[in-house]
Design a binder for these strands. Structure first.
Lengths: 290, 290
DNA sequence: TTGATAATGGAATATTCATTCCGTTTTTCG
DNA sequence: CGAAAAACGGAATGAATATTCCATTATCAA
């Protein structure tokens, strides 16, 4: 411990240094070492608290590989390396709010950093608000309806389009039959005409409500297609026609509304539907769906 | 260990509950137990990282007293008690915890509501993490590049497509000339060939990185078009070719990654660009842009 | 004051954990 | 293609750590 450390070029003692050392040397590292190094950087909390065995399992390597990595980087052993990750947590005195403040503080009024922190703030507030207002029962009922649908139609224009795009992506991954009604051409209504009561609709619309979305939703509702709506106010026209609906009031910054909370909801829906369908297959009450 | 825990009223699993339990029962505790309990509350970080021996020394008691305290409070042992202090450090990003807890509380295990709260949790953590890791300077530089671009090309496939869609929407609103390269047909590369060094690219890609996005980005970079990348790891192939890049490591739930943090970033970029262009018009160093 | 009970200190013990070692596999270079 | 070196997996080992046990001391009621 006396002469060995003098021989070392320099062993990083704080997380940021370690991070850059790993990034720099990753290309020349053996496969498993690189693998566990990547895991360490993306799961620093686990590195701080886990045991060599638990981390090794999570990173899909042997415990010995962790010791090898530590030595490879110049540390005495795994424990020595782990201390860097612990120090990181220890010294993180800044809570998230404080951090945001510092972002704002380092920014002269009207600067870019202030803008960024503003949007992050809006995002986190939106998520928090949704978490405290959303009704688990409504969600469950909506999932019920959607899980029994043969095809799920997705109606969204303009600002809510990214939302729908993401749902469509998740549906594709999960093997849920769907049809997105958001094409830039004018054949939307033609696509919607195939929907029946056996199907269902997810419609998203925020103020100012796109007229097309509304008329499409109303038309569908008139034909007995159940509608799940994602909107931003009790007074939304969508809420009137919907079978179930969610109120997601996003915070805004500089006049632009966040989408972060809606996104979380948009991700939860497909997964919940897929899961519900699995359990429906085991105990099918009616023969809906494929 | 079998009947004892049933007899316990309830063992606190989070720091705040533990805190109130200790405060409440402190008066009726034996002297040494009260002593070490007080130490624990005023040195929670030491409790998280220290060993039983080190903490005992610091609190001027015997190690066995720590075990006694743990048992006294209903825990299996010192390690079990220590986990509460570790969890506190792990989760200390959010003040929204309590709100989320209420959602989780009303949810039986495996229910839909639990799923929803899981995704909201992931979203909230992602935003918090981005807020604490993002570099205001990088953001500012990226905005610089983009503000001077004639046309901004948007490259995104699959999971990152909704992100790009939203940026495109904001660009449209703000009157920023852009071209989205994400069409479902095969003419992507043809669209990209018009880009020159006077333009710029925003490319988003998350693991597993879509091959097309990468090749397009590399091709563009080779022609001298500056690239701003949004990706999820330092090891992302995108980061290598990018002029400036943002690391957005989204938390995942049930294997599905959130998009909430990236969304916040995606909203901040267009607004910042628009604002920068306004100030460039007043003091134009070079005649770039329209 | 005295006996009984609870609390405490400190050593003994059992467990968990990081580390090392060795046989095998993979990679590298002639 | 073949030999040497590096990397790796997995079990063995030894150190560190939490826990338990017991003798001693303090507390309290009769």
């Amino acid at each position: 411990m006396t002469s060995s450390e003098a021989a070392q070029t320099r062993v990083p003692r704080d997380f940021e240094s370690l991070r850059s050392v790993i990034i720099e040397r990753k290309e020349t590292m053996p496969k498993r070492l690189a693998q566990v190094a990547a895991y360490a950087l993306s799961n620093p909390d686990d590195m701080a608290f886990g045991t060599a065995a638990s981390i090794a399992t999570a990173a899909d390597v042997q415990p010995s590989t962790l010791v090898r990595l530590a030595h490879h980087l110049g540390y005495d052993g795994f424990s020595d390396l782990q201390n860097v990750f612990r120090a990181r947590l220890r010294d993180r005195t800044l809570s998230y709010e404080e951090r945001l403040l510092s972002l704002e503080a380092g920014a002269t009024a009207g600067s870019d950093a202030e803008l960024l922190s503003g949007f992050l703030n809006a995002a986190s507030q939106s998520v928090a608000r949704l978490a405290s207002t959303v009704d688990g029962e409504t969600f469950s009922k909506a999932v019920d309806v959607l899980a029994r649908a043969e095809t799920i139609y997705l109606v969204a224009k303009r600002r809510s389009y990214p939302l729908t795009a993401h749902i469509a992506y998740a549906f594709g991954k999960l093997g849920i039959r769907h049809q997105i009604i958001a094409s830039p051409n004018g054949i939307d209504t033609e696509m919607a005409q195939f929907a029946t009561g056996k199907d269902a609709v997810i419609a998203a619309s925020f103020s100012p409500y796109a007229a097309e979305s509304l008329t499409q939703a109303q038309e569908l509702a008139g034909r007995g297609v159940p509608i799940i709506a994602i909107t931003d106010s009790v007074f939304s026209p969508l809420a009137a026609t919907a079978t179930h609906w969610f109120e997601v009031s996003e915070a805004d910054y500089a006049g632009f509304r966040s989408l972060s909370a809606s996104m979380a909801l948009a991700m939860a829906l497909p997964v919940a539907i897929a899961e519900r369908r699995r359990s429906l297959k085991r105990t099918p009450r009616r023969n809906a769906g494929e």
